[in-house]
Simulated scan of single mutants.
Amino acid sequence: MLPPFWDYRREYDELRDEVLAAVDRVFKSGQLILGPEGVAFERAMAGYVGVSGGVGVNSGTDAIYIALAAAGVTAGDEVITVPNTAVPTVSAIQILGARPVLVDIRDEDFLMDVAQIEAAITPRTKAIIPVHLYGQCVDLDPLMAIATRHGLKVIEDCAQSQGALYKNRRCGSIGTASTFSFYPTKLLGGYGDGGMVLSDDEAVVRLARSLRFYGMEETYYAERHGYNSRLDEVHAAILALKLPRVDGWIGRRRHIASQYRRGFEGSGLRLPTENAYGRHVYHLFVVETPGDRDATLQRIDARGLKCGVQYRWPIHLMRGYEDLGYRAGQFPVAEKKAQRIFSLPIYPHLKDEEVDEVVAVVRAAI
């Protein structure tokens, strides 16, 4: 029987006793929101990434707009990012009344083409969001140099890259702030939504902490306009017990990726590139087919295997973002990739023999 594209239940079976003990501990504590479990997890995540402070919030989307707001982005500002990302990256910008400005990606690794950033900067540009897509980092040194020259904030979108390295530095430790998602499919995932803002800037952390709770600080007095976005104690406790396992899970993902590389050698599929400057954590294993991707997926599906496409439509080609004013053909690399890529199952509890079965089915289909 072929494995599912993703399934949390094997992980839960392994951790069930610890998860239920953590949930029971929280329920018995009498505190469900903004309590000691959340504080402990914020400190643990900050320590893992290598920054001084973390602020738990309700989702990865909330983390992005709260981080932007805490960094000073307001209505009318422009924020540079990429078209091949999940909708939350750009929807978070628009929640603030700011405007997403897009630049194309690199052909070799699906990541932001840093060389295109300066041409996109205007007097209204306030920040850049590099999306560390699929499990590895954007080339941050030249990006940070551009941001410094132009006085721009950098908010790292780390939703798909927990544990990735850039020149031996943790993903999320380099920009003004970084954002993480704990959506169930993520490398560090909960059993529901969750997110976090991380930063070495004490002022950013302090403001993010206020913004997540209606703009309040010590009392029920709003110092500023804010939001309701809090990571609950149950999820904080569960995520905290999973965090020490992240590096082991990354090792397993990298093993599966190497197994795929051997299995698809000479197949004609273009396999993921791992940049020399960092460590890929393989949140997704994305391949590119030279032929008709959708016909290939139909043949794979007919053999009983489910694969994914992240992402089938670039942001600028979605009806909901027509108002950005972009047109088809404006970001040719992102558009080409969207027509050719698909993702293979990859998660730590996938067995070696199941990986071999995936290889056999996909090779037969292509």
Rank of each mutant, 00 (worst) to 15 (best):
V154W: 07
Y65Q: 03
R124W: 01
V82M: 14
D104E: 09
T81S: 13
V101C: 05
I146K: 04
I128H: 06
A119T: 11
L143P: 02
V154N: 02
M196S: 06
V154R: 07
D62A: 15
Q94T: 13
Q160K: 02
I80Q: 05
Q162S: 12
I121A: 08
H150G: 00
D139E: 14
D141I: 12
F110L: 15
A70M: 09
F182A: 11
D62P: 07
G172I: 11
Y191E: 11
H132E: 13
I66S: 10
A98L: 08
A177K: 00
L188G: 03
N84Q: 14
G175Q: 06
E156P: 01
R169D: 04
T81A: 02
T176E: 03
G190K: 01
E78M: 10
V57H: 04
V114F: 05
L133K: 14
I117K: 03
A145W: 00
I64C: 04
A120G: 11
V103F: 04
A115V: 13
R149N: 05
A120I: 14
A120Q: 08
A145V: 01
L187H: 08
G190D: 12
S173Q: 04
A120Y: 07
V114A: 12
A127I: 11
L143M: 08
V87L: 12
D113Q: 11
R169S: 11
A92Q: 07
A115I: 04
G72Y: 05
A177G: 01
I117W: 08
C171I: 10
N168I: 00
G190P: 01
R170P: 00
P184Q: 05
L96I: 06
A147L: 06
V138L: 08
L96V: 01
F182E: 10
Y166Q: 07
V79S: 09
C137G: 08
S59W: 09
S173E: 04
P88H: 13
E78Y: 07
T89Y: 01
G163I: 13
L140A: 03
S91A: 13
I121H: 10
A127S: 06
I117N: 04
G163Y: 10
L152T: 03
P142D: 12
E156A: 02
P130M: 15
D109F: 05
G97M: 09
T148L: 08
T61M: 15
G172R: 08
H132N: 15
I93L: 04
L188P: 00
M196Y: 01
Y65N: 04
Y65M: 03
Y166N: 09
T61N: 15
E118C: 05
L96M: 10
A145Y: 00
A69Y: 09
G189R: 02
L102M: 08
A75K: 14
T125G: 02
V138F: 02
V73M: 11
I117M: 06
N168P: 00
A145C: 00
T61E: 15
T122H: 12
T176S: 13
I155K: 03
G151S: 05
